[in-house]
């Protein structure tokens, strides 16, 4: 029969799905709960709690009072906004300029872009380039290399090419220049894919950690992920400079930093999700 599967099969499926979801969700619940728990409960539980008895934001207040977390969070926000904004601009401009078949240099430029998918120069050559350009210890070293991706250029181009030729021609007859056609016609008609590119790049800029290890020498320039590694992965002691201050438990401070690094992702996630089906999938299957 093709109707509903048997009870046993449905039961097994249900258990598997619940387990999968629990494995994903439980760590986040423990992290958030521990960041909100007080000293007494943490001591009683032996380090971590699954539900805060008396939730308080002391740990958050403490990490932001210290100054370091505030600074690195702002640095990461800055890199993320500048990086994803510029990447959308650069990618959509190049995708648009490659979207008209038969235009000057269309095929060689397209090939130049596509060919980059086949290779990746690796750590040492990339490092030498950044050094030669004098970008060591500069935030541009974290931003510029990630602005263009052949894959994204091809996906956005494919969307632009589906915009009916008649609309573009009509706009041109009305006196619109190329930039106006891009900003007033192409981008509004391709909102979904542009949103996906922007959000994916934002997540990538926010998450990157190793390029900062490689290219930034001075610790005061560090982005959030490096501070996260130092305090939460390598378990460096978190202290405050203020004498006599009551410091919230170490675990709460660590988990609070972790939560801070999660917030932007959770903020953009619903928007990303709305576009999953439209943007990524079509692009991935096409590409």
């Amino acid at each position: 029969m093709v109707t509903k599967p048997g009870l046993a099969i449905r039961g097994v499926k249900g258990i598997v799905l619940v387990l999968c979801c629990a494995v994903v969700v439980l760590p986040f619940i423990a992290v958030i709960s521990t960041s909100l728990a007080d000293q007494e409960q943490i001591t009683r539980a032996g380090g971590y709690v699954l539900w805060p008895a008396n939730p308080s934001f002391d740990a958050y207040a403490a990490i932001f009072r210290g100054g370091v977390v505030t600074r690195v969070t702002l640095v990461s926000i800055g890199i993320t906004l500048v990086g994803s904004g510029l990447s959308v601009a650069v990618v959509s401009m190049l995708a648009y300029s490659l979207s008209r078949q038969g235009s000057f240099g269309h095929r060689p430029i397209l090939f130049l872009v596509l060919f980059t998918m086949l290779f990746n120069a690796g750590i040492i050559p990339n490092y030498l380039l950044i050094k030669q350009l004098g970008l060591i210890d500069s935030y541009w070293a974290l931003i510029l290399p990630g602005l263009t991706s052949a894959f994204q250029i091809i996906i956005v181009r494919a969307f632009f090419m589906e915009v009916p030729r008649e609309i573009v021609d009509a706009a041109r007859i009305d006196g619109a220049n190329e930039l106006q056609i891009l900003t007033r016609i192409m981008l509004p008609l391709s909102k979904a894919v542009i949103a996906v590119v922007a959000l994916f790049n934002a997540v990538a800029y926010w998450s990157a950690f190793f390029n900062a290890v490689l290219y930034l020498n001075s610790t005061e320039k560090w982005p959030l992920q490096l501070v996260l590694r130092t305090y939460v992965v390598d378990n460096a002691q978190i202290g405050t400079d203020l004498p006599g201050e009551v410091v919230p438990p170490q675990q709460s401070l660590q988990m609070a930093i972790l939560v801070v690094s999660l917030i932007p992702i959770c903020l953009v996630y619903p928007f990303l999700q709305k576009h999953f089906a439209k943007g990524v999938v079509i692009g991935a299957v096409k590409g």
Binding site: Y96, S97, F104, A121, N126, Y127, L144, E178
Partner: peptide, 29 residues
């Protein structure tokens, strides 16, 4: 005819050449 179109693509092409092809030169070491 396509000069403005090419101009729009220029920043992207420059970045692709510099940051995707540029590092290949470093392989001489």
């Amino acid at each position: 005819r396509d000069r403005f179109l090419l101009l729009l693509g220029l920043p992207g092409v420059a970045l692709v050449v510099l940051f995707h092809y540029g590092p290949l030169l470093g392989n001489v070491i």
